[in-house]
Write a protein that binds this DNA or RNA. Structure first.
Lengths: 325, 325
DNA sequence: CGAACCGAGGACAGAACCTGTCCTCATCGC
DNA sequence: GCGATGAGGACAGGTTCTGTCCTCGGTTCG
């Protein structure tokens, strides 16, 4: 029964919109008998969605957290918010949800109504540019690759090698791997006839889908490790060591443990070790702490700090002269 | 038929997972006849979901973008990614999707399976601390308020006034308004018996729901404007004017138009006007541009720039001595 | 061009299901 | 205890669904 299925979906959407609904209210809203509402609630329950109910004058039905996520029914604005949120997460990935965020974003992009696209692409650029300091990965490239992977389609894109050479690639994409905060594509290069690992941020064009291909056995079972091995360098561009002039207790409260390794260096000093892809972003975070610090490594960061210091001092103009003396 | 509804949902989920499915494959997967699959596809189509199909050896069904978003069926990791994404968006709101992101997050939190909660709260703190520089709004406070609004429940929380005085509040919450990058709650204060506008970032505890209340007529139809009026000051803490030593063309490419107003000041200079809640974040963004700039207003920003310059110079140590002379 | 594959959809019969109506019972708050 | 709410059994009539035919119209590849 089509009517029934649609009503179940509608019911689910109503229960997601407002926390609590009373049986008669639902019946009126959906133009059926209260008995039918009770039956529909029962159906949803047997489908695994936990709907609790309380009798009495202040009673009603409410959807709770179950074993698995019910289908999310979002309106236009909420869909847009989700899309923007996912874009932000893929642009500067959070440990542990990188690949899933790309999958979800691909899923959503595939079904996003056309009328929302202009708003989405407008906001997307704002988000990615804001998130840019740490990892300049274009989510559009990621979703294009992700779509090609599930469709098993060869993709074509321009790729810039480490030495700056740029060339056109035709590859069979197999997996996206998120190591640290950088994205890699494991693919079979159809021209060179071998497995290659590509850095997604070095793709210089949005990959365009081509002909279908039939799957090959993967070069390794644990692709995450395979990628790690195929990368010789540290996953980060810079490995920094910083000495902060404050106790470890204070620092711990202000720097998430996920980002940096902290070790105590006496009561009033803390050593911070962390990998970064950018010099500016960590420097600005450190400067904002209002704690004196000293860059022990790398040299490039010291140079950059001095550069930024100079620019800020000049930007401060008159007020800066106090310090410039 | 319960079976049928469940199958339709399952079918939708399969179509969201992989771009293309062939009829026989779906039939086998769902253990029904191909004829039934065709009928189910037809049902989904009459429900408004556009499913395109192509005949021939390389054919199959695929779900496209329709007039409205189909129910999103996410797996655990994807749900987590969406939750984290929304948290990031609410913590540092993007113009235009602020309120919707809170609604979506509330919706999701209500049904998020218990086994995902520990992972979620773990990642949440990392995200909010990273996003902190611009707006220290706790998404947990927002979702608590949002839930209370839809449930029509009085909430209790500690609130710190502008002058630093902190007191316990019991209010009927009505609407969350996102002006610029700050959140306000429009509510009826049950003790003072009047409408009040609260800054969400000044809530010093997570609002806890209390008794139900019956809705009052709102103090204004356009609540966004009402909030704007009830705030005397600019929505931002600082209104900055910056002179950048580069042409407007170059600057436009690097600073999103949504964030700042740009005006040309000759071929090699651009005036930037924008509101900020933090001094550090915009300063470091500007410094990272590798364009010389000059702070025209406000004075506080000049002072802060000089402070940061001093700290960075000292952090640079030896390398910094070149500039310190 | 023909073969193989895929989607579209009409017809039919039997079974299964759904809905509304009517009823009784349990629970909660006043 | 009363009113409002949820739970659920029983029943009848009508609708719908499914599987099994079948034909037709495309596409792709050899």
């Amino acid at each position: 029964m089509l009517e029934t299925s649609a009503r179940l979906l509608h019911l689910l959407s109503l229960l997601q919109m407002r926390r609590e609904w009373t049986g008669p209210a639902l019946a009126q809203r959906m133009e059926v008998t209260e008995r039918t509402v009770r039956r529909d609630i029962g159906k949803l329950r047997t489908l695994g969605y936990p709907i609790s109910a309380s009798p009495g004058i202040a009673g009603g039905y409410q959807l709770g957290a179950g074993a698995q996520l019910p289908p999310l029914l979002l309106d236009d604005d909420e869909a847009l918010a989700v899309a923007i949120g996912l874009t932000a997460v893929t642009a500067s990935p959070v440990a542990g949800v990188g690949e899933a965020s790309v999958r979800a974003l691909t899923k959503l992009e595939q079904v996003l109504p056309a009328r929302l696209r202009p708003r989405f692409s407008g906001l997307r650029s704002a988000v990615t540019r804001m998130a840019a300091p740490s990892t300049p990965v274009d989510p559009a490239v990621l979703t294009a690759l992700s779509a090609a992977i599930t469709e098993r389609r060869i993709v074509a894109f321009r790729y810039e090698r480490h030495d700056g050479e740029s060339s056109r690639r035709l590859v069979e994409p197999y997996r996206l791997v998120d190591t640290g905060r950088r994205w890699y594509l494991v693919a079979w290069d159809t021209v060179r006839e071998d497995w290659r690992t590509f850095r997604v941020d070095r793709c210089r064009s949005i990959p365009s889908p081509r002909a279908r291909f039939t799957a090959r056995p993967l070069p390794a079972t644990d692709l995450a490790r395979y990628v790690q091995k195929s990368i010789t360098r540290s996953p980060y561009s810079y490995d920094a060591v910083i000495r902060l002039a404050a106790g470890i207790r204070e620092i711990e409260q202000r720097i998430p443990a996920e980002i940096a390794e902290l070790t105590s260096d006496g009561p009033n000093a803390t050593i911070l070790r962390a990998g970064f892809d950018s010099l500016d972003y960590p420097l600005m975070q450190l400067a904002s702490l209002d704690v004196e610090f000293e860059i022990l490594e790398p040299e490039a960061m010291r140079v950059r700090a001095a550069e930024l210091a100079g620019r800020l001092r000049r930007a401060a103009g008159r007020a800066g002269t106090v310090y410039a003396r």
